[in-house]
Design a protein around this nucleic acid. Structure first.
Lengths: 369, 369
DNA sequence: ATTTAGCACTCACACCACGAGAGTGCTAAC
DNA sequence: GTTAGCACTCTCGTGGTGTGAGTGCTAAAT
């Protein structure tokens, strides 16, 4: 289904995409011939274009306008036509440098990643905090704040910390909850969700917090919505397609944390692959003029998050894909390092092999559909 | 400087503001007479308008258009003309209800407040997390994550929890840091920033974390940028003044956490007062078409944050002011309750007297300049 | 069989003229 | 002090018109 195009036709499509992405103006046969010094007449190009249009790779906004790639056209381009466009080593170095400057905390990394990605891609970036696929409890603290409210602080693997305030059924004293915390630590340090169960003969208060703890760990595992950080909204809104503000509300919608699952198809993310969703391919109809380029990052079998960009369908796919891939690699490395310092030194991230040899994190062809 | 207007002139100004806020269309003399059944002819109104224009309370977009209030006109309106527009008891009840439903954690409250305010005011809401004016340490935990990284969890007063990851100068073991944590707790529980000092004869590792702790408490007190939560961007962007997207970038700018101090004049916030900044009165020139209505909330002498809205200068000031005032009151109550459960049962928040008697948190005239 | 030149045709867009309508300022009468 | 009247101004919507980019088709050239 993808290789039906003759070489010349494919080349025309490639140029149409290239030119349109560049100029945001529908591209005509003559423009193409002039600008790219083709040894063909406009008429020939017109014929090829007509065929491309028959097969729905490109369309007409109206009769006497130039051609614009359709979703299908972009898809073919991404699949078969484009040539990779790596970040310069300068840019790569700068990005890595920034991470090494920053605090060594997961939340900070996520925020920084969003900022850097939005700059590198000149687009709206979107990064979710990593969820553990196998959450384990490291340590728990109970701190009495007032007569009947107790703060539970749970430290999980991968340096994640959760806090939750509880109102206890009956008044408690600090000594009592400290005692409970000690028992919980003794019993459940290193435990996963399924291993956290109420001990026989436990006091009411211990049972209460055991259940709370289990709830928390389970919540992490099943990943209530992960938090999302975005940055670079301005970049997208500055694009000419959003001159009319109607379209613009769609973008805002996409950015809204509440709709996250509508824009990122988490089930389809795969380790080491960059996923591209073009216009109408998105689940949500309001995204019909937007494309998403997203990848998974993390440590296989232990931790995963998503990182990607959202922009108009008219985007520089090669550049976006490379950039997202690179950032996913960087994030995976960081997580890997963090991960390596505890628990089993697991298999390295699929990016890692290449990342560590300098500046090029993974360039496997990736899943691109 | 404010009471130079004759009663009738003031009334005309009031109606112009009212009508323009409602319709977003420059208002003419005839419209005014018809719509508000004035016992005067359009010509008379025209005369009054001409005088108002001389004194710069209103302007002309162009010769044959109606009148539009200037910043100065809005200011006079807010200062002397408007009548309060309270939320209905229904709305108030709904808002309170939502808070009682929610988790009892500060961050959740802040987020919820932003959401509710943006809905109630149909506008862009903006809430900062409260900073303590007198931070005290309640409890500290040190947890070894790997050979040389230790997570410090500090519980402060008002149920605030901070975590920070440290790389220690030399490898440490959990038993050692636990020991250090115990000593720190013994020495500094309840201490403020100035009281946290390195003990004589302390080990290198203890000194290291003592300093870290002091840093953290000081950071809270001096309030590195407080976090800000926003909600309701769509509400503002839907306003007709943002039909052209140029203006729109200004709004996005205002929302950006990084520019926060430019939009909220923290120094000018006062306990119990609602501050209104109209158009050009804002510090930042990009805000010249936006107004800010903001109030302080918190517990006097202990905790303060800001809550407010941003919208076009053409906004329903009475409604906005009441709504912000009410939400500030609700937040103050919540903080007060939290505060009351620990430390000294301090003087109640200035809103509290009235809040607790049902549904009307404070309606003092407030500082309105 | 492919490519190209030529040509008629289409359509968006910019430009202009024009009239309607809303609004103004001024003056003179009430 | 108020109002009626009137001339004037300016925006906005409408419709006509021309230009230019671009197309599709046909027939000739390669």
């Amino acid at each position: 289904m993808t290789d039906l195009l003759t070489p010349r036709r494919a080349e025309v499509l490639r140029l149409v995409v290239h030119e349109y992405v560049d100029s945001a103006v529908p591209v005509g046969s003559k423009t193409l011939v002039n600008k790219y010094q083709l040894n063909l007449s406009p008429a020939t190009i017109r014929n090829e274009m007509a065929r491309l249009e028959d097969e729905e790779y490109i369309t007409h906004p109206h009769t006497s306008a130039g051609r614009v790639p359709s979703d299908r056209g972009y898809r073919y381009f991404v699949e078969a036509l484009m040539v990779d466009e790596e970040l310069s080593s300068d840019e790569k170095a700068r990005i890595r440098h920034q991470f090494h400057q920053a605090a060594r905390e997961v939340d900070d990394w996520v925020e920084l990643a969003a900022t850097l990605l939005s700059q590198a891609a000149n687009s709206l970036a979107l990064v979710t905090t990593p969820r553990s696929t196998r959450t384990r409890l490291k340590h728990v603290e109970l701190i009495e704040l007032s007569e009947r409210s107790v703060l539970l602080v749970a430290v999980l693997n991968e340096a994640r910390v959760l806090q939750k305030l509880f109102t206890t059924p009956e008044p408690v004293r600090q000594e009592v909850v400290t005692e409970v915390a000690n028992r919980l630590n003794a019993r459940f340090a290193g435990a996963g969700e399924s291993e956290i169960t109420v001990a026989e003969g436990a006091s009411a208060i211990e049972a209460f917090f055991t259940e709370a703890l289990q709830e928390i760990v389970r919540g992490e595992d099943e990943g209530e919505q992960p938090d999302t950080v975005t940055d670079g909204l301005q970049n997208v809104l500055a694009q000419p397609e959003f001159a009319r503000p109607a379209r613009l509300l769609d973008v805002l919608d996409a950015v809204d944390e509440r709709n996250l699952s509508r824009v990122i198809p988490f089930q389809r993310l795969q380790e080491g692959a960059v996923l591209v969703m073009i216009g109408g391919e998105n689940r949500d109809d309001s995204m019909r003029d937007l494309s998403v380029v997203v990848a998974e990052y993390g440590v296989p079998g232990a931790l995963r998050g998503a990182i990607g960009i959202v922009g108009p369908t008219r985007m520089r796919y090669p550049r976006m894909i490379s950039t997202v891939r690179y950032m996913a690699g960087v994030m995976s490395d960081l997580m890997g390092a963090l991960h390596g310092t505890e628990d089993t030194p697991d298999s390295p991230s699929p990016w890692q092999g290449e990342v560590s040899r300098g500046d090029s994190p993974g360039r496997g062809s990736g899943e691109r559909s």
